[in-house]
Design a protein around this nucleic acid. Structure first.
Lengths: 196, 196
DNA sequence: GATAAAACTCGACACCGCGTCGATTGTGAT
DNA sequence: ATCACAATCGACGCGGTGTCGAGTTTTATC
């Protein structure tokens, strides 16, 4: 899933796997320090302790590095998501818990998630990773909403994109994510109630 | 409002104003044909019938051209928005009318509006134009929602961003905008009802 | 522990798009 | 006619990109 390789390498727990991780770590660090635009193949390579030409052995471009970085984070998100099953509370409680969980994801991975949103228009690969993640979330919420008498998947989808954008801006502006979560949850719940 | 000038020119209905419009038109055409990434100062200049160096007389960079283009469209949006006052119908009718109006905006100006969204992370100037537009809309809707017993501006804001993103994706994917409008309006109205 | 095939590294190169400068031509006012 | 300013362009240097081929290091095999 993480792979976005048009670099020449392929498989095995070789030495270069450490380099690969080092490159991703360097990219993430740069992301926080300079932002996507300023980041250059040169600076990533320097951060990883290799030459520019060597980086091209691992990744075909800056965008491929970023794609792999987003893939890594998206995988982490998916791993945490599976925890949030079980426990059949009221529908509204499930919704509130889900939104709070989303807030935590943005707290922990905001840097890369913001980059994922920013780069969605730029690369089909990242667009796929991000919309895939959101759609998986939307599919899960469609189930929940269906149990509350709101069967149309498009409603859950729209609310998911609301949640995404709202947290994105809150994350960019440094707003309080708890407050953001409350607002989103309020709208989710009101939508359920108002659709009876 | 449209101005984003660090090019050397300043004012007056001179001959070069035609060029300026020609440049914006060329950029808009290129936007549809090749997309933001492929578009180059060279190609814009060629489209406008001038040399690359001459374009720099009017605009300081490709991004400034795009900013002016977005500004032009955003102004058009604002102009159309003022029409939608008067006529005191029910709150839900106002909401539905507003969403339908938004759908028409995306139908008519989808190309540049998509670009505005895509470039929002890239330029503070475009970010300002776009968030300004959305926030103006949100402020108006806050009034409407307040009349329905939902005074918190953050709710209208979140719903506006939902509307923005949902139409954005629908526009990108070529989905039916009427259907999208229905879904959005449904959520707006349900939120009002559910918040009683 | 020799050796051959890989995995890996890097300097050097050509390319492309950007932004600037200075020199030149067009245009309108007086 | 001339003067100031609007507009145009060729040519330059710069910085980032991606590739190539020649090296070095690692790993598997005997």
């Amino acid at each position: 899933m993480t792979a976005a390789t048009s670099g020449k390498r392929r498989q095995g727990p070789r030495k270069g796997d450490l380099r690969e991780k080092a490159i991703l770590d360097a990219a993430e660090e740069l992301l926080g320090r300079e932002g996507v635009e300023l980041m250059t193949v040169e600076s990533i390579a320097k951060g990883a302790g290799i030459s520019r030409a060597s980086l091209y052995f691992y990744f075909g471009s800056k965008l491929e590095v970023l794609t792999a970085l987003v893939g890594r984070t998206v995988d982490a998100l998916a791993a945490q998501a599976e925890v949030a099953e079980a426990a059949d509370e009221s529908v509204e409680d499930v919704v509130r818990a889900s939104v709070r969980h989303t807030a935590n994801s943005w707290r922990e991975h905001g840097l890369v998630m913001r980059a994922a949103v920013d780069l969605t228009p730029v690369t089909p690969a990242i667009r796929g990773l991000w919309t895939g993640t959101v759609n998986r979330y939307a599919a899960a919420m469609t189930e929940v909403l269906a149990r509350a008498g709101v069967p149309d998947p498009a409603v859950a989808e729209a609310l998911c994109w609301m949640t995404e954008r709202t947290f994105y801006w809150a994350s960019v502006n440094g707003d309080d994510l708890d407050r953001t979560a409350d607002i989103c949850a309020q709208i989710w719940c009101a939508t359920i109630r108002g659709n009876n």
